[in-house]
Design a protein around this nucleic acid. Structure first.
Length: 628
DNA sequence: GCCGTTTTCGGCCCGACTGTTTTCAGTCG
């Protein structure tokens, strides 16, 4: 059983327990176990076989036993019992923005609302606003939440969201009084899918900045607006959060809003052990923290309530507190800023405060980066500037838009040393791909272009290649004698996605001419799940045959995924980053590939196309020899 | 349910904003 399927058992338990208003820490334990399972590079089944389940952080005795049961029987009795205790539709309602367990349960008990459809039918009757504790606005908010849910059931893809986000960042940078602007959240971590856009800035005039932001042409509607924070909806229906912070808190806020949640919790917990309080306002030394500190906690409580308490009642208390924290703090922020500030202007200061070196945003997923940082074994991850060429490009010879000459020019503009022309073969019918005759013609044209560039003294070379289809029986779509003439051969699956692809991919790897397997799992984000394949076995064959696996940089694929990249590295398989571009403008998606490689902990030497041209051709030669 | 340089028991990150009520609960990130 794969880790994701297993993780879903625990997500479901957490969802149900949430609706049953169980102990939140217990819920979080299940949630955390699910997340840990999702980010493990090793198959949990192997770990279980070695009896090492409980060595996995977040998995203890209870969850360990449940995993064993699932692996053994494919079922979990505990979950099956749990399911009987609540109507199944309630779980899906948790996904509606603004609806939490309390509201869902209330609506269920008052009106028998069991599904999202029930809720949609109830809304026009205007009964919700008559409930105690609810009003016109609450009902309106539920309606808006439902609309947002319907519109945006799926998370958005990185490559679709990033351009809009950068456009807003650039606009904000020009606003008077704004000093620094940065993306935060999953967008900054370059996660393959994005829930919302988080933007952070510093400003001389926060009020004015917030006012300007709310008027931006990209904004359709403002959902919430305070003195430091705005929640808005873009015209594309995506949520955009803006936070305005003070310059001395920029690093702390950037770290905090970049996440992810588990990473933050670990950092803050490390802070607590050092007598520090870490929040979005900075790093603070708190006297008495880490010990009993009851007095401190009382004070904290009082502080928390300060901004909201009745002025008359708290006058006396307030006098004391103001003395303790200083007069000039903003309302409601004083509690957060309690203690002596020891850092927070930069993210480095936050990490340093807990004894860590800087950790890149792409690594902040609580996948062992904090432990690695502590032990001084953080990877020196790959950067876009390390990429020496694109190893997957299409031209007019199949379904690409540009000529060979144009593609070469685009490669030169990106300061590449080389670029692999890799058009489809004929089996991929709709692409009008290449047969043996057509590819001969293409090779001749590539030679001519290379010759012209050489004469002009341009240090750039087009490589002759192909994206050869792997047929259902594992054979390739071009004869070996043709493949032998090419500089590099990519092989990929484009049909019969229903079958198990393990043997099909393995036989392709074993062909002496195949250098790279493209988009190895066939997934299309938000469209198509990965096909059935035992990637572990394929990777093992790749290691033996020295075949590289592609990280397809196109944002709707990003295949290999970050976690699979990490696994490839562990097994010792090279990763080749290719854009699969069908238009020269698409060649810039390389940055999403590099970001995903970073998220997979890949270093320069793990990636094939960080090699110079000579090294690359040497690698091919050496690989061919070892396959013979 | 997990975990331990604060503990094998008793903690578990921390704050903003909204709506409805007037002191706080709910939700979100």
């Amino acid at each position: 059983m794969d880790n994701i399927t297993l993780a879903n058992f625990f997500h479901e338990i957490a969802d149900i327990l949430e609706l049953k208003e169980e102990n939140p820490f217990r819920i979080n334990a299940y949630r955390r176990a699910a997340q840990v399972l999702e980010s493990l590079t090793q198959n949990i089944e192997e770990i279980a076989q070695k009896g090492k389940l409980e060595e996995v952080p977040g998995i203890g005795e209870g969850i360990g036993e449940k995993i064993q049961e699932i692996l053994k029987t494919g079922r979990l009795r505990y979950l099956e019992e749990l399911r009987k205790t609540i109507p199944p539709g309630l779980i899906s309602m948790l996904a509606v923005p603004g609806l939490g367990p309390k509201t869902i349960l209330r609506l269920y008990h008052e009106f028998g609302v069991e599904t999202i459809e029930d809720l949609e039918r109830l809304l026009p009757q205007h009964k919700i606003c008559q409930l105690e504790g609810f009003g016109e606005r609450s009902e309106e908010k539920i309606k808006e939440g439902l609309e947002q849910f319907r519109r945006h059931q799926k998370r958005s893809l990185l490559g679709k969201v990033e351009p809009l986000a950068l456009e807003i960042v650039r606009t904000l940078e020009k606003v008077k009084g704004v000093n620094r602007v940065s993306l935060a959240g999953s967008l900054r971590r370059k996660k393959e899918t994005i829930g919302d856009i988080d933007i952070l800035c510093t400003s001389d005039n926060p009020k004015e900045t917030i006012a300007v932001f709310c008027q931006l042409p990209q904004i359709k509607e403002v959902k919430a607006r305070g003195t430091t924070k705005v929640v808005a909806l873009s015209k594309t229906g995506l949520e955009i959060d803006l936070r305005v912070v003070e310059p001395e808190a920029f690093g702390a806020a950037l770290h905090y809003f970049t996440g992810n949640k588990q990473h933050n919790i670990k950092i803050r917990t490390m802070g607590i052990k050092r007598g520090l309080k870490i929040n979005e306002y900075g790093v603070f030394k708190v006297e008495g923290r880490g010990k009993e500190g009851e007095e401190e906690q009382d004070k904290e409580e009082a502080e928390k309530n300060r901004g909201t308490q009745d002025e008359e009642k708290t006058k006396e208390k307030e006098g004391e507190i103001k003395e303790a924290v200083g007069e000039n703090e903003g309302e409601g922020e004083s509690a957060a800023k309690e203690g002596v500030r020891i850092g927070g202007a930069t993210e480095e200061e936050v990490f340093r405060a807990v004894g860590l070196p800087y950790i890149e945003p792409e690594l902040r997923e609580d996948r062992g980066e904090i432990e690695a940082a502590l032990e001084g074994r953080l990877p020196k991850t790959i950067n876009l500037s390390d990429i020496k060429g694109d190893l997957h490009c299409h031209t007019k010879y199949s379904d690409g838009h540009n000529t060979i000459e144009e593609v070469a020019q685009a490669g030169i503009e990106r300061e590449y040393e080389y670029l692999l022309i890799s058009d489809h073969t004929t089996t991929v019918g709709i692409t009008h791909g290449m047969d043996a005759e057509k590819i001969q013609r293409q090779m001749e044209e590539i030679e001519k272009v290379n010759q012209r560039l050489k004469e002009k003294g341009v240090r750039f070379r087009l490589l002759k290649g192909v994206e050869c289809d792997i047929k259902a029986d594992g054979s390739l779509d071009l004869p070996d004698e043709i493949l032998a003439q090419l500089d590099l051969v990519i092989a990929a699956i484009h049909s019969k996605f229903g079958m198990d692809q393990t043997e099909r991919l393995i036989s392709a790897c074993q062909n002496p001419h195949v250098d790279i397997i493209a988009h190895p799992t066939g997934r299309k984000l938000g469209e198509r799940d990965p096909y059935q394949v035992d990637l572990e076995r394929v990777m093992e064959v790749c290691r033996k045959t020295k075949t590289a696996l592609e990280l397809n940089a196109f944002w709707n694929r990003l295949d290999l995924s970050d976690i699979n990249c990490k696994r490839a590295k562990e097994i010792g398989v090279k990763v080749s980053i290719g854009t699969d571009s069908h238009h020269i403008l698409e060649m810039d998606v390389m940055r999403y590939g590099v970001a995903t490689a970073k998220r997979g902990w890949l270093e320069k030497e793990d990636v094939l196309n960080t090699c110079s041209l000579e090294e690359l051709l040497g690698w091919v030669k050496n690989r061919k020899k070892s396959k013979e």
